[in-house]
Write a protein that binds this DNA or RNA. Structure first.
Lengths: 344, 344
DNA sequence: ATGGCGTGTGGAAGCGCTTCATGGAAACTT
DNA sequence: AAGTTTCCATGAAGCGCTTCCACACGCCAT
């Protein structure tokens, strides 16, 4: 029935070495001659050997497995984040277990009861807001934890300065003539999902506009779910308030894409009559020439993984905060073809 | 740090029994005298003993973990399904690992990976259509597999009789005066997602109408994606074809919701001028008074988990098919306030 | 030569559990 | 009374790994 996995013994036999040597190769112990190491690695390869994490955990107290908990897996943001995390962890021969966990209740249940949580040497949590749902923002686990796309005074956190991103957007759009609009992506407070990033972006945006002396009336804001559809509706709404040129800060690339679509459908000149600025720096933004406030998502993932590695290796200092800065990427969706931009 | 956990040895010593006896208590083995069992349990209690799951896995050659593979995690249908599965499995002290897997390619990759070998005693696959993408509909795994919301002659399957649901809808709506319309949710053939359920519902619906002697012209059908928006557009489309009263079989609750919204927006009397029947039995259907063909999704999940448990315990009989029947739930969205329904 | 040292390597011991051959005692048989 | 069966219970063996002691070997200094 169950196809038996090869064990360390078979690897040892095939490579013509002892048990201990194979184990030493697995654990990157320095005292192995390079040729021997190579021979062992080849034997592993040939046998399709993977170490049994449960056995490692039992024998060595470590499993070389890291759990990544995130609300979704199918979105671009998390894909990029995982890419960054994987890059660092796989190189150190760690395994990854992914857990898409949508609700805080489930998050708690997972941490408290799951054997898998128990198996894991460390945890990376993406986008969860712990302060509200866990007492003192403390998770029921004694494993090292790193948060990413979130902040918490108890754990190492890696996050983007979304407010700064909003400011960049505001400062940039303030340079153009025409009315200024913004779209805010709705946040669902009961879901664990990236609680406040959209509010922070908007707050920074408002700040920058104020400092630039450009008014931002309340009805120039449109609130919608994270969808292209939302962007389309928003543009139609904006066109009732003012006539072109319009400058739209879409709050998220996906929404910005909807704005672009609708603009084209209405025959408006993108980049002059309608200027659109996204937020995220998704791959498709480049394809369609969308200007955007880009997040270094892969780098954030990689940094989170590094912090976790340090913790798993015993580092016990106080929680660290790593703040990443977004970057304005200018493309055709805001570039006026023709006359130079107006600067008030 | 972590205070050292007591082990089976300490429990045995304290209870004054042998190792094996403690193990048998842990595994609910019948051959233990009740007094002995009680003594052991008390010793465990007093020591605060919990078995080390990794040791169990390693010694027993089992992982006590079940993987659930599904296309999405964030929809109501899968939430309910998981609830049913979890209920059964957690009680038997099994762990759950969730894998949202959208494409068949990824499904194959997962099945062939070694994570599976160590992490999983059994698999529950939801909504995948294997026949097209896997040779002979056979999966590359030697673990027991149960399918849910799908059918396949090689594996135990748990599914809803969608055709019957369609029939119920048809028979029911045929009793009302006014034109009959239906919405069919589009199926995306490249995605693995619930391939044919919507077609089956429609087929049953058509059958029933025919038997009832009620015509169903081809242009009374509207095809759309699974969204509220789709329902809204559908109703507008239907109103061009006939004037109220209208009877709409929406094919899915989410779509039905859009129909209701649009009807209200247009000032039509829901339940008399426009009658709407959904499909699914989502929680919000009750809230808004939507009549619907309800699926016992939790029960389906629970049944699937039970079938899998039996397989994991060694049952080796031929594949079993468990067919669930939907249930018509009548609410205000089809209840004519006032005159009794017209029966032709 | 002799000793001392560092570098690689082998394999026994042990992690906490399950399984299984073994056997004692009590309950049935003939 | 002796044999047979059933019921409980024991503890050694083993799961796949890490760790660590032991040892072989080459190299250098004396």
């Amino acid at each position: 029935m169950r196809r038996k996995q090869p064990t360390i013994h078979e690897v040892a036999a095939r490579a013509g070495v002892g048990l201990g040597t194979v184990s030493r190769v697995l654990n990157n112990h320095p005292a192995v001659r390079p040729e021997t190491r190579a021979r062992v690695l080849r034997a592993m390869e040939e046998l399709g050997y993977t170490p049994n994490p449960h056995a490692r955990r039992i024998a060595g107290g470590r499993s070389y497995t890291v759990s990544v908990l995130l609300p979704f897996v199918a979105t671009e943001f998390y894909r990029r984040l995982l890419e960054g995390i994987e890059g660092v962890l796989l190189e150190k021969r760690y395994d990854l277990a992914l857990f898409p966990i949508l609700s805080q209740a489930r998050l708690r249940r997972y941490l408290e009861s799951s054997t898998l949580a128990y198996l894991t040497d460390g945890l990376i949590l993406a986008s969860y807001d712990l302060t509200e749902h866990f007492e003192e923002g403390r998770l029921p686990t004694d494993r090292p934890v790193v948060l990413v796309d979130a902040k918490n005074p108890r754990y190492d956190s890696v996050y983007l300065d979304n407010r700064l991103g909003g400011r960049l957007a505001g400062e940039y759009l303030a340079r153009f003539p025409g009315a200024i609009f913004a779209i805010k992506v709705e946040e669902e407070p009961d879901k664990a999902f990236r609680h406040t990033v959209f509010s922070e972006r908007l707050a920074g945006f408002r700040e920058a506009l104020e400092e630039a002396g450009r008014p931002f009336p309340e009805d120039h804001l449109y609130v919608t779910r994270l969808s292209q559809e939302g962007g389309r509706l928003a543009l139609r709404h904006f066109l009732e308030k003012a006539s072109p040129p319009l400058n739209v800060f879409a709050g998220a690339d996906q929404v910005a894409l909807g704005v672009l679509e609708e603009a084209e459908r209405l025959g408006l000149a993108v980049g002059r009559e309608v200027r659109v600025l996204g937020f995220d720096g998704h791959p498709f933004a480049e394809e369609v020439g969308l200007s955007t406030i880009a997040q270094p998502v892969e780098a954030m993932g990689a940094r989170a993984a590094q912090l976790l590695l340090e913790r798993m290796q015993g580092y016990a200092g106080p929680p660290r905060e790593v703040r990443f800065e977004p970057l304005l990427v200018e493309r055709t969706s805001t570039l006026t073809p023709g006359p130079a931009p107006y600067v008030p």
